[in-house]
């Protein structure tokens, strides 16, 4: 019998420990497939963040490193500059990239470092138990904003694509979502572009992906998919914020 669906060779044969309805598994699968489709698995080096996806170093079937919280772009820079033939990707969450690692992502983008960054925005700190993230929406409840995020006291969410688009450096900035099949396909295209840019030595690419966290949002998986479409996308509009490939055409 012909097998028509299975685990891509870009993922290890390990049971992933993500919660039901979590978006990480979807994005992992897309990356795992692309590592194979693009023929880059054997020259890829991935960076796992600190957060729920810290275990990404067990899940991606390629060389992996797990650096300090937020420092993925700096570690990526060190690897890429030392081994320019490797394909280096940094997988980060919103606490990792938009809070503690703000300096590193801004400067890697500004240097147009030839790396690929996958930024999972689920508007919450997942692993530590649902605390407020820099991307938590105004009014949204978390374990450190139990009344809902009060913008007067806790400020506004950080819109990473818009922020980085203020820099001259980055080559490709795009925001996508994985809350429905149509957007999953768009996410795959964006990630393919982001890896393609690195292969073509074009420079810095970041794909921000709106992703579900039913556990910490206090929702069912179905509710959380709807919430992205109904609420989160309004605050974080999808689309390309920088695409030098198109500008150059």
């Amino acid at each position: 019998m012909k097998q028509i669906f299975g685990r891509p060779a870009g993922l290890t044969d390990v049971l992933q420990r993500y919660c039901p309805g979590c978006g990480h598994g979807i994005v992992h699968r897309i990356i795992g497939e692309l590592l194979v489709k693009l023929g880059i698995r054997e020259r890829a080096v991935g960076i796992a963040p600190v957060g729920c996806s810290v275990f990404a170093d067990e899940y991606f079937n390629c060389d992996m490193i797990q650096p300090p919280h937020g420092r993925g772009p700096a570690v990526s820079t060190g690897i890429k500059r030392s081994r320019p033939d490797c394909i280096v990707f940094s997988y980060q969450g919103d606490g990792d990239l938009a809070a503690i690692g703000t300096a590193e992502i801004i400067h890697a983008a500004s240097r147009n470092e030839n790396i690929t960054v996958i930024f999972i925005n689920n508007a919450i700190f997942g692993m530590t138990g649902g605390q407020m993230a820099p991307t938590t929406l105004p009014g949204m409840k978390s374990t450190t904003s139990v009344q809902g995020r009060n913008i007067k006291k806790q400020g506004y969410p950080i819109k990473v694509c818009e922020l980085l688009a203020g820099l001259d450096g980055p080559y490709y900035l795009v925001r996508t979502s994985v809350h429905d099949p149509k957007n999953i396909i768009k996410t795959e295209k964006a990630l393919k572009n982001a890896f393609g840019n690195q292969i073509a030595k074009n420079g810095f690419s970041l794909v921000e992906i709106l992703s579900m966290c039913p556990t910490n949002w206090g929702m069912t998986p179905v509710q959380s998919k709807r919430w992205i479409g109904d609420t989160m996308m309004k605050y974080f509009p999808l689309g390309e914020y920088r695409n030098r490939a198109k500008e150059e055409k």
Binding site: P67, A74, V75, S76, G78, I79, R81, S82, E104
Partner: peptide
């Protein structure tokens, strides 16, 4: 060789982590 003036000492040591993990003297 590679010379990078970093945004901070934090970035510098982590770039070393990457380069050395890639097997290079850093």
């Amino acid at each position: 060789g590679v010379f990078i003036q970093t945004e901070s000492e934090i970035a510098a040591i982590n770039m070393l982590f990457g380069a050395a993990a890639a097997g290079k003297r850093a």
